[in-house]
């Protein structure tokens, strides 16, 4: 196992780790869609809906960011 193999595999792993962005994207899109529905149903509550939606989206983003941190660690420590 030479050095280049480790490097290549680490970079490949970083790429594969970012597949987690798929789930985060779906979750965020779902939250935004439901937020739009809620605004259409109840236009007066738009401010509360917006802040709740942003909070939910930021929470859904977390799983994607975990994978981002793993990818960054792989790239900068091994790549």
């Amino acid at each position: 196992m030479n050095e280049f193999f480790v490097k290549g595999m680490a970079l490949l792993g970083a790429g594969i780790a970012m597949v987690a962005g798929f789930g985060a994207g779906i979750g965020q899109g779902y939250a935004a869609g439901k937020g739009a529905e809620a605004v259409a149903r109840n236009p007066e509550a738009v401010n509360e809906i917006r802040s709740t939606m942003i909070l939910g989206i930021a929470l859904a983003e977390t799983t994607g960011l975990y994978s981002l941190v793993i990818a960054i660690l792989l790239m900068f420590l091994k790549g």
Binding site: E61, T62, G64, L65, Y66, L68, I72
Partner: peptide, 16 residues
């Protein structure tokens, strides 16, 4: 851990 990694990932990804 989750609070700090969320903030870290967001800001670092933007700056990268």
């Amino acid at each position: 851990l989750s609070l700090s990694i969320r903030l870290f990932g967001n800001i670092l990804s933007g700056s990268i």
